[in-house]
Structure formats: structure tokens, C-alpha cells
Design a protein around this nucleic acid. Structure first.
Lengths: 234, 234
DNA sequence: GTTTACAAAATTGAATAAGATTTAATTTAT
DNA sequence: ATAAATTAAATCTTATTCAATTTTGTAAAC
């Protein structure tokens, strides 16, 4: 595989492989229960076992795989229950994001959020969903940065990544992009005024709405999957 | 070093080394900015470079060290600001712990918490502070388990570990053990009744008090340190 | 005295080999 | 057919090697 021929951005092979496998798990290429064999992955990626092992050890810490000593690693992945859990935890933290961000955000960060907002508006008019996905993720990542808390940022970035697929499908549902845009607008406005309470409310409101939407989508997709399954056996 | 002569509990060398170095960082044996050289650590621990490398990669993901490609890893550690951050985040999540625990706790888990509580009471009468530290950590770990949420559990266990030192010193302050015991009692009582609101309140109250205490201790210790520093230069 | 240049040393990154250990699968013996 | 023994497969760990990169030490140049 030529993915790793020229190393990018001064990153180690290990971290590239880590991100690749993580992506493959979160995108569903590897399903829960799949066994990840070091030498297979190494051959597949065209590297030696060493960086693969290191990446797998990191994935273990990330909770995406189980590493049973002397037996190897199996994929854990993200279940529907996991998504529910993450959404609830996220909801109970995002108020703090609003508070800290309103207190600590810098002028250039406000500008950055405004730019992302404008771009989202632009691409929503063009109907470019992929760009919107990307910008939506970036909006929240940038927001997390403004809190100046590496722990808050770390936890929420992880969560965001874990539920990425569900989040993206949810944005496709009727009218969600428009409402999300309006919610983003309110968040930015509150932050611009450094209004702690307004920022808290705007963020909690946004995440609560997002959660409802994501849960609906996950539910729908599960039912669709079930219908397909019964169709198969009929 | 004979720490790793006979491997414990079916754990890999890598994870033992990971825990050892993490412990050394959190206990202050390695200070922020210290460089961790693979071969030195390997010699020190009497193992080869490979498991040390894997452990360091895990520590990087844990946020306790920075890994700069081709330059090595340096210790990040936990600053006073980090502790403040973690306390605030913890406070905003623990309500959820109360809720989920009250909804999902099993009978045998209630018994387990009661036993830990009884033991803490016993050792507090004996004045065995180390045992109390241990039991206090165990109480909260057990509590996190009862939520049946691997993410909530994971995040909070990490946080608890990161602020372990501060938490322990805080328990030493006058009367804190007694008040903490009373708060634990209220938590268990609420959980036993599966009373969601009461559990939320009891937990938020406990964590809020704990936070105040920890902040005071951290503040005091910092001032003491500063006083010593100026004493040196006088 | 400070800076610059360059070679040497040290460290990490990655690959590979090899033996030990553990687990899983297969065969053999009863 | 079950139990025991053997074989096979995969991981764990050590060890060695080479390349790439950074750091250090030294000397020349300003």
C-alpha cells in the first residue's frame, strides 16, 4: 500500500497506522468481534509489525479494541448503547464548554468561528453535504479549543470522533442543517458578547437538539437494518 | 529491576511498564519537562526497548507525555490548572453518575458499596489513612462501574487517577474524612432507594465539597512551596 | 566574545530475526 | 467418544541492524 510511502506532516508511521485503523473501525470496515492480526495488517499496509503493534496498543487504550494477552486484539467498535451513553455525557459537559469558551475565547477565535459559520451557510445553499460535515466537525473542534482546557478538548474530540458516522447521517435529516445553522449562529453571538449564561444555554440547546436528531437517525437505521434482516429470511 | 521478574495477573510487560511510568509521573518522580529516554528506561527496568516504546506510545495517548518525532518523549504531568480543569469537568459529569447509578445499580453492587463504606468507617476510627485512601478510590471506582457506561467509567477513572495525589492529601485535612464519610453514606442510601434525584444531589454535593477541599489543599501546598523557594534565595 | 559550520555522538524510527510462551486445532490413544 | 498428546499459529519479548534525525562538541570565522 502506498498510503505510507511518503510520510506526512512529520508524523510517525505508528500514528498514521493508528488513525487509519481507527478510521476503519469507526466507518464500520471492521465489525465488532473482528480479529486484528498483526502480521496481516502489516502486510496489508506494507509495513513491519513494529508500528502496527504500537498502533494497536494505542487503540486498546482508546477503548476501540480489546487486547487479550497472547491471543491478540479484537474490535470493540461503537454500539447503539455506546452512542446513547456518549450523547448523554456530552450533553452534561457542553454547558461547561459554553461557560469556559465565553470566558476565555480570543478575538481571532471568534473570527475563526464566524468564518466557519459563513462557509457552512454558503455550502448549505449549494447543497454540498460533505463540506458541511467537515465544517460542522471543525466548528465544534474549534469551539473546544477556545475553552483552553486540554482535558475538555480531549474528551469531547474523542466523543465527537466516536459518533462521527451517526452525527453525519443525522445532519442529512430534513431541515436539520438549517436548524443547526441557526443554533450555531446563537452560539457565536453569545460567545462574541462573552455572555456566559447565553453561551451555556445556546450550547446545551444545540447539543440537546443534536442528540434528539441523532437518536432518531440511529433508531431509524436500526429498524431499517432489522427489516432487511427479516426480508432475507422470508 | 525485579519488578517484572514474574509477570502478574496475565498482564503484558507493556502494560506493567505503562502503569509504572504513569505512576512515576503522577507521583512526581518525573517532573514536567523531564526527558524520557527509551534505552535508559529499558535498562532501569531490566527489559528491552520494545515494550518501553509501546508503553510510551500509550502514555502519549493518555496525554501524560509529549512525543516529538525523532526527538523523544518529554513528561507533561499535571499542573495546578489541569487539576482545576479536571475538578470542574468531573463536577459537571457526576450528576449523571448519580442518575445512571440509581437507575442501574444491582443488588450485589449496593452490598459492595456498603461494605466499602463500613470498612472506611472502621479504618477511620483506627486512623489508618492509607487504607482510607485506598477505600475512597475503590468506592468511586465501584460507583462508576454501577453506571454500566464504559465511557463514563473510563473518563472518570482517568480523572481520578490524574488527581490522585491531590485527592489523597485533601483527605488529610481536618475533619474531611468525617464529612466525606457522611456524604458517602447519603450516596449509598439514595442508591439503595434507587432515588434518582437524591442520588444526583448526594453526588453533586459530595463532589462539590471534595473540590473545595482539594482546591484549598493545592493552594496551600503551592504557597508552602513558594515560601520554601524564597527561603532558599534569602 | 559570539556566531557559524561541520563532524561526531546519541537517539529515535523502523525492519527483521529468533526464541519463548500461550492458545487453538488436530491427531492419536484408550 | 472422550481424554491426552501433538502440532500449528499467533503473540510476546529480546536482540540486532540500518537509516534518519537531532544534539553536542569543536574549531574556524567574524
Amino acid at each position: 500500500m502506498d498510503l505510507f510511502d511518503q510520510k506526512k506532516e512529520n508524523k510517525s508511521l505508528t500514528s498514521l497506522i493508528f488513525e487509519k485503523i481507527r478510521e476503519d473501525i469507526l466507518n464500520g470496515r471492521y465489525a465488532t468481534g473482528d480479529k486484528l492480526v498483526e502480521i496481516k495488517l502489516a502486510d496489508e499496509l506494507g509495513v513491519s509489525r513494529t508500528p502496527v503493534r504500537e498502533a494497536l496498543k494505542q487503540l486498546e487504550l482508546d477503548g476501540l479494541v480489546d487486547n487479550i494477552p497472547n491471543r491478540g486484539v479484537v474490535v470493540k467498535g461503537i454500539s447503539k448503547k455506546d452512542i446513547d451513553d456518549i450523547l448523554a455525557i456530552r450533553l452534561s459537559i457542553e454547558g461547561l464548554v459554553g461557560q469556559w469558551s465565553a470566558e476565555r475565547i480570543l478575538d481571532h477565535e471568534i473570527k475563526e468561528l464566524e468564518e466557519i459559520y459563513d462557509l457552512m451557510e454558503f455550502y448549505s445553499q449549494k447543497g454540498d453535504v460533505d463540506k458541511i460535515f467537515e465544517l460542522n466537525t471543525k466548528f465544534h473542534e474549534t469551539l473546544y479549543q477556545t475553552t483552553k482546557s486540554r482535558y475538555l478538548e480531549g474528551v469531547l474530540n474523542d466523543f465527537q470522533l466516536f459518533i462521527k458516522t451517526a452525527r453525519n447521517s443525522s445532519l442529512k435529516s430534513e431541515g436539520r442543517i438549517q436548524s443547526a445553522l441557526e443554533e450555531h449562529r446563537q452560539i457565536v453571538a453569545a460567545l462574541k458578547n462573552h455572555d456566559v449564561e447565553a453561551a451555556r444555554n445556546a450550547l446545551v440547546n444545540h447539543i440537546a437538539n443534536s442528540n434528539i436528531n441523532i437518536k432518531n437517525i440511529v433508531q431509524l437505521e436500526e429498524e431499517k437494518l432489522k427489516a432487511e434482516m427479516t426480508e432475507m429470511t422470508d
